[in-house]
Amino acid sequence: MSKAVTIFIDGREISAFEGEKLLWVALRNGIYIPNLCAIRGKKRPSGSCRLCYVQVEGRSEPVTSCTLPVKEGLSVQTRSPRVDRLVRSAFELLLSHHRLDCRSCAKRKSCELLKLAKERGLKMRLSRLAPLEHEWPVDDSAETFVFDRSRCVLCGRCVWICREVARVGALGFSRRGIRRVVTTFQDVSMAQSRCTECGLCVEACPSGALYFKEGKQPAAAGQNLSRGG
């Protein structure tokens, strides 16, 4: 196994294994760094949500902690004016393409966007950007859950878990640019797709894009595989 090293996060001395990504070291030690797309079991971090920026001592530009391998003596700050600006901007950009109607959202109790806003003192509204249009209707064809793409933040957790853990392969990314979307083969409804309704994707979803219909949450649910061990 890799050798043990000592690093510093916000001045706190922490031991870790060399080569581990900083984000996981921080989270393990109870230090919050905003993140949405990070999946522990994934070999190469996705690096797509651009929320986990930290300031590394000796570097002028903030770097994403999910891609930062730790080494002996590494010293980082989880907050700095530049980090805060990038996080605030990325967050507002995500919100601009996310249906902001928290009161009616089934995930409001576990929403990771709300958590992020609370931790970093950010508002759940747009200050300078106009909201972008949503193209996709809500898909409630599945028996147990609903897929509402207007609340999707494209973190990719559902796609990964459907493919790698559930081994179903019903969900995938399609298209590109602003039209990039999580969808099924030929965009058929969930009910028409090869989805087995195992519910793993619903648990993995950090926002209200995938949620169980009332009373349909499977009993075995509760452990979030994309985030765990």
Partner: peptide, 21 residues
């Protein structure tokens, strides 16, 4: 760039879209 953005990361996908708008 907006049309050619892969759409993966937040800044390029959404940031360039708002700039274009």
């Amino acid at each position: 760039t907006q049309q050619e953005s892969c759409g993966k990361c937040t800044f390029c996908r959404l940031g360039t879209k708002h700039m274009l708008d």
